[in-house]
Amino acid sequence: MGAAMLCGVAGIEHVTLDNSAAYLKSWISALRGDSRLIVTASSAAQKAADLILGTQVEYTQGNEVKAS
């Protein structure tokens, strides 16, 4: 998910869309077994993308507060 987010920011989403879709499809069985997994995985992917992009984000008690 993080790779898909970063590709979107970089403007190369159309090139990697099929690969990203295939990777996410592999998660379907895991997601069916754990309804909270998508939230946890998405949050971790967003934090990783923010770190890679150098975005300053402060996370407090599950809420996201953007800093400059």
Results as ranks from 00 to 15, higher is better:
residue 47 K to A: 15
residue 6 L to T: 05
residue 33 G to Y: 01
residue 67 A to G: 05
residue 18 D to I: 12
residue 64 E to D: 00
residue 61 Q to S: 14
residue 22 A to R: 15
residue 6 L to H: 00
residue 18 D to M: 05
residue 13 E to P: 02
residue 35 S to F: 08
residue 14 H to M: 07
residue 53 L to T: 13
residue 67 A to R: 12
residue 22 A to L: 06
residue 67 A to H: 06
residue 52 I to H: 00
residue 7 C to M: 00
residue 12 I to M: 13
residue 32 R to S: 02
residue 27 W to H: 11
residue 49 A to R: 04
residue 24 L to I: 08
residue 36 R to T: 13
residue 46 Q to K: 10
residue 17 L to Y: 07
residue 24 L to G: 04
residue 51 L to H: 13
residue 33 G to C: 08
residue 10 A to F: 14
residue 33 G to P: 00
residue 8 G to N: 00
residue 42 S to P: 00
residue 45 A to W: 09
residue 32 R to W: 12
residue 48 A to C: 09
residue 30 A to C: 04
residue 55 T to G: 01
residue 20 S to N: 05
residue 19 N to F: 14
residue 8 G to L: 01
residue 2 G to Q: 01
residue 25 K to D: 12
residue 29 S to H: 05
residue 20 S to D: 06
residue 50 D to P: 01
residue 48 A to L: 15
residue 42 S to M: 13
residue 53 L to R: 09
residue 34 D to I: 09
residue 54 G to P: 00
residue 21 A to M: 03
residue 55 T to D: 10
residue 1 M to E: 03
residue 16 T to Y: 12
residue 19 N to Y: 11
residue 12 I to Y: 01
residue 3 A to E: 11
residue 42 S to K: 00
residue 56 Q to W: 08
residue 3 A to V: 03
residue 38 I to A: 09
residue 19 N to V: 07
